[in-house]
């Protein structure tokens, strides 16, 4: 089990935890995630991105969306959870030239370490952070340190521009002088889908990081599968990052709701209907 060493509430539903995990902290690379369990007896396994790591701890950011994330948000410093990883294929980092990093909501968690590496090796980095409202814009200050230019947009205009992230993204892509060599977009599925549709128009390569239902996170269950260019891929081992142009986002949206409604009415099912 792994001890929680730090906790911070970032917004109403978004939390940041630091967790002791020596080996993971040492070997994790940008783009990788862990599988978290609240306990090892009857708890479920959920994937969470490693947002950062230092010394012997890893940083996790999560939004309360279901039973496990709700219970996780109630834990405090000193409590223990179980984490395994780092899982997934690390991000391919190289000198691309001009890169736009788009983060929506808690998508900033996976985006942060990638952006940091991309910036570090000398790319020209434009960051666009988007959320519904001001309080949901996360880590704005931290992104300032790892970008050349930062654009914030909110749906209600309470911070930055009143716009969807696709608007500044389109402007950057449209202009031949700012047109990026690569876009990395991480956030809710609809956001990633529309970023992809936007950049496709200008023929700009776009990478998205997917967060699907998983059990083991090592390729064993196949619950995380996604159709990429008509071919089935496993997010946990082939991903989590894919070229957005080939990703079937509508199928992912449906698959994400596989167990919707079941969580709340869960009862013992053995023999009930026989």
């Amino acid at each position: 089990m792994n001890k929680i060493t730090f906790k911070e509430q970032l917004s109403k539903d978004v939390f940041c935890l630091k967790v002791q995990a020596k080996e993971i902290a040492k070997n994790r690379k940008a783009g990788q995630f862990v599988i978290v369990m609240l306990n090892e007896n009857l708890a479920e396994r959920i994937p969470l991105t490693i947002a950062d790591a230092e010394n012997e701890t890893i940083t996790l950011i999560f939004q309360v969306v279901g039973a496990t994330t709700f219970k996780l948000s109630k834990l405090n410093v000193g409590d223990e959870i179980s984490v395994v990883g780092p899982l997934g294929t690390p991000t391919h980092i190289e000198k691309f030239g001009k890169v736009v990093c788009v983060g929506g909501g808690v998508g900033v968690a996976p985006l942060f370490p990638i952006c940091k590496e991309i910036y570090k090796i000398g790319n020209e980095v434009n960051v666009i952070l988007g959320a519904r409202t001001k309080e949901l814009i996360l880590w704005e200050e931290r992104f300032k340190d790892i970008s050349h230019n930062l654009i914030v947009c909110t749906d209600d205009g309470s911070a930055g521009k009143k716009a969807l992230v696709t608007e500044p993204l389109e402007e950057i892509c449209k202009n031949n002088e700012t047109k990026p060599d690569l876009v990395i977009a991480i956030g809710p599925l609809p956001m990633m889908k529309f970023c992809s549709l936007t950049t496709k128009k200008y023929d700009v390569k776009t990478i998205v990081s997917l967060n699907t239902i998983m059990i083991d996170g090592t390729g064993m269950c196949g619950g995380c599968r996604v159709s990429v260019n008509g071919e089935t891929k496993f997010v946990c081992v082939d991903g989590p990052e894919f070229d957005a142009a080939g990703v079937d986002f509508d199928n992912l949206l449906a698959r994400g709701k596989s167990f919707a409604g079941i969580e709340h009415e869960h009862k013992c099912r053995i023999g009930l209907t026989n």
Binding site: E44, R45, T68, I262, H266
Partner: peptide, 12 residues
């Protein structure tokens, strides 16, 4: 994950 049990958090 013992998802068939009421106490389990893993949905089936």
């Amino acid at each position: 994950m013992e998802g068939y049990k009421e106490e389990s958090n893993t949905p089936v």
